[in-house]
């Protein structure tokens, strides 16, 4: 498989994610109100609007530089835990692709997502089943890797990743939170979907759309 993923696809991914966050802003905040501090939707929306504004101002020429710029913008605008986590995710993806690499293969995209996932683990120390964004992102990365191993196209692989992220998001509902503010609730966190996992599902939704 030697398809080249253009920088425009990554830009479309980021813009699509910003649109989905804006459309789901209230929903994400409601999820956070149940087990957190009711600011996830507004914080993510502020950050992704800033990221889109940064791309409007100047679009970096390579995918790596573009994702790094998005990550740095999120870190400096979102605050809370989501800023460092989503920011680190995009910055690690950018670093994995490299600032100067002009061609990006489907395998490079999977490797970048794997690196982004590693960044979230480094920053947030989340483990599987902690009821965090990890629980939606990890199965998505695995689904993409498995699809590419089976010679699927990136578009097909990201559709599988989208489905896996949505399933991972839904699977956080019965979990007991062990990280972040939700962990203070103990048993009372059970029965609520994790807002970070919900945002990750939107992220993969946007990725699948951008690649199709």
């Amino acid at each position: 498989m030697s398809e080249n993923v253009t920088t425009a696809v990554f830009e479309q991914w980021v813009r699509g994610f910003a649109d989905l966050i804006a459309a789901n802003r209230e929903h994400l905040t409601e999820l956070d109100a149940a087990i957190g501090d009711a600011d996830h939707g507004s914080n993510m929306d502020r950050g992704m609007k800033a990221a889109v504004a940064a791309l409007d101002e100047s679009r970096p020429p390579t995918a790596g530089a573009l994702l790094t710029k998005v990550g740095m913008t999120l870190v400096s605008t979102v605050g809370g835990a989501s800023g460092p986590l989503f920011g680190t995710f995009f910055m690690r993806m950018g670093g994995s692709l490299g600032a100067t690499a002009e061609t990006v293969s489907a395998g490079d995209v999977a490797a970048a997502l794997r690196a982004g996932l590693g960044g979230i683990v480094d920053r947030g120390k989340a483990a599987p089943g902690d009821k965090t964004m990890y629980d939606a992102l990890a199965p998505a990365v695995e689904a993409l890797e498995a699809a590419l191993t089976d010679q699927a196209t990136l578009a097909t692989g990201l559709k599988a990743a989208r489905d896996a992220a949505a399933a991972g998001r839904d699977a956080t509902t019965p979990m007991l939170a062990r990280k972040g503010r939700a962990s203070y609730l103990g048993e009372r966190s059970v029965g609520h979907q994790d807002p970070g996992a919900a945002s990750v599902a939107l992220l993969l939704d946007a990725a699948a759309d951008a690649a199709s």
């Binding site: 605050g79 986590l85 947030g124």
Partner: peptide, 11 residues
């Protein structure tokens, strides 16, 4: 010790 504070100060 709040998740967000710790991460932002760490970065």
């Amino acid at each position: 010790n709040y998740t967000g504070d710790v991460m932002n100060f760490e970065m």
